[in-house]
Design a protein around this nucleic acid. Sequence first.
DNA 1: TCAGTATATGTCAATAATGACATATTTGCA
DNA 2: TGCAAATATGTCATTATTGACATATACTGA
Lengths: 104, 104
Amino acid sequence: MKTKKLERLQSAGWKVGNTEDFLQLSDEEARLVALKLSLTSAVKKSRIKRKLSQIDLAQRMKSSQSRIAKIEAGDPSVSLDLIVRALIASGATTRDIQVAFTTN
Amino acid sequence: MKTKKLERLQSAGWKVGNTEDFLQLSDEEARLVALKLSLTSAVKKSRIKRKLSQIDLAQRMKSSQSRIAKIEAGDPSVSLDLIVRALIASGATTRDIQVAFTTN
DNA sequence: TCAGTATATGTCAATAATGACATATTTGCA
DNA sequence: TGCAAATATGTCATTATTGACATATACTGA
């Protein structure tokens, strides 16, 4: 069931809400979260593939190691902008990004 | 040349920077901006296709009409998160999103 | 033309995301 | 094992993004 998935996300720290519009928003939110998660794993994959440490990647995109760690950990505080920036900075091609989008 | 493109983006209000790391970051920034722009036009396309007004879409995603206008106008203050949320809320399929990503 | 509807633009207080930092934990290898 | 490099986690002041609002402008049909 879909509830399982939401529980997982919620326990991971994602705000999924539980008011009367829970069912309304949950689907869209879940899609967004799923998309984010698939992109974050793409970041890690791309970074490893290019043999970059988190510090290396952080320097490339003028961020910090802890931020990169949070990106890859799927931390809810990380924006989609930052995730995609990381993807690009890690050397991912447009195709790689598309694939990441596909795999959600 | 690439400079032309950056000038266009800059004049549209995008911070593209002009310090010594201009050339370093410009490529990645430009890719991100291009991606955002292609997604914003996908939002408009999807919204129109479903015959939704900006107010309709705003209500669906609990945002405001002015925000939707800014999304579609490619306003630099709009995050990728919000753009993708709008895409999803407008009824775009995962495929639609992929296509938007492809067309950049 | 005009009225009604839709969209655009500017502003701002509230909120969310950020880099930086300290520090904890894990990993890999001699 | 033990050391060093890498990664993870928590916190916080600064900065970016947000919805809401007012209002301007564009569009459409009568």
